[in-house]
Nucleic acid binder design. Sequence first.
DNA 1: AAATAAAATAACCCTATGGTAAGAAATGTT
DNA 2: AACATTTCTTACCATAGGGTTATTTTATTT
Lengths: 191, 191
Amino acid sequence: MKELISKIKSSIPLSQKAEEYVYSISKERNISKGETLIREGQKVRKTYFVNEGCLRSFCTDKTGKEHTLQFAIKNWWMSDFMAIYSNQIATLTVESITDCKVIEFNAKELEEIYNLYPEFETFQRKNLERHLVSMHKRILNQLQLTAEERYDLFLEQYPDIEQHTPNYHIASYLGITQQSLSRIRVEKTKK
Amino acid sequence: MKELISKIKSSIPLSQKAEEYVYSISKERNISKGETLIREGQKVRKTYFVNEGCLRSFCTDKTGKEHTLQFAIKNWWMSDFMAIYSNQIATLTVESITDCKVIEFNAKELEEIYNLYPEFETFQRKNLERHLVSMHKRILNQLQLTAEERYDLFLEQYPDIEQHTPNYHIASYLGITQQSLSRIRVEKTKK
DNA sequence: AAATAAAATAACCCTATGGTAAGAAATGTT
DNA sequence: AACATTTCTTACCATAGGGTTATTTTATTT
């Protein structure tokens, strides 16, 4: 819990009571590599804050192919936000691609904090802003960069992920096939 | 202003004072087609709420090609949120693609409402959630749909935009060239 | 209505990426 | 260490979409 609280405290003032409440509704969990935290088609009850390791969210299309929406590393939130915010069944699956330390929140209880402690709503609003910025950048990158440029950027943004996840997950994040990524990687070593 | 207030009131309770404050810092503006509201490279001072018409935000790459990030129709906010939330110079241009009625806010003053009226922060948090959901969907569509499927979806989501904007803006939103979109449209009429 | 400008389509060929399948390399398991 | 499984690479051809340029259509201006 330390991690989240220190993160919160550095960005907004948080009262003793608010801090205690956050403790009371959260649960530190050690997740081992390959666990599924949220499953497509089921109700989404949890939201996760990553302290260590990496989570991945993806959807599966009709042909069975996976498409990675996000990798969440330290200090990022992860859930199926489409499901939570629109009150629908999960369309995403969330799984751990490394051993992780996460803080688990019940999504409903997290909603209720806002009424009790407005300072927490400020914290969450800022997280949403940060998340939105990151999604805007992602969309623009997808529109204007080549697959190779996107891969370079990915390596910059997530320098630690490459070692921990198979390349086809990265490919599915970049919007290309495993084979195309392999080709790009090979050409890179030639240069 | 009526529009925004009614929108706010339907989603959250808003005190008389908060309502008056929102009035005091906002300005109704009639925008004619083709005006530039935010310009790439300049400081971003304004955020817009669309009551009528349609705004478009886009970035321009090294080769001069435009990439459309968003179309904003009734009840959506528009600005360069990357610039505002990261306190940087605009990388986007925002222009009107039809005559519009918008409510203009000074972005800084909008920040200050949150301290004065926490109920406004709730409103804004919900807007951010809605916006985030829309971006997540957009990314997943880009990853899993063909250009033609994305175009079909676009026509569903923005049935009124097609008549008001040149096709190359739509193409730049879909991530394809004007010529490819033309090809898709022609094939569609054959079917 | 004529002239001009802007947008859309068409036709060319080219390139990046996809699909499939097979083999090589790496990793995990007994 | 041997085997099985997973992941990565290679090679083939197929295809969607890009770049360029020309032509047609539509919209705008005079």
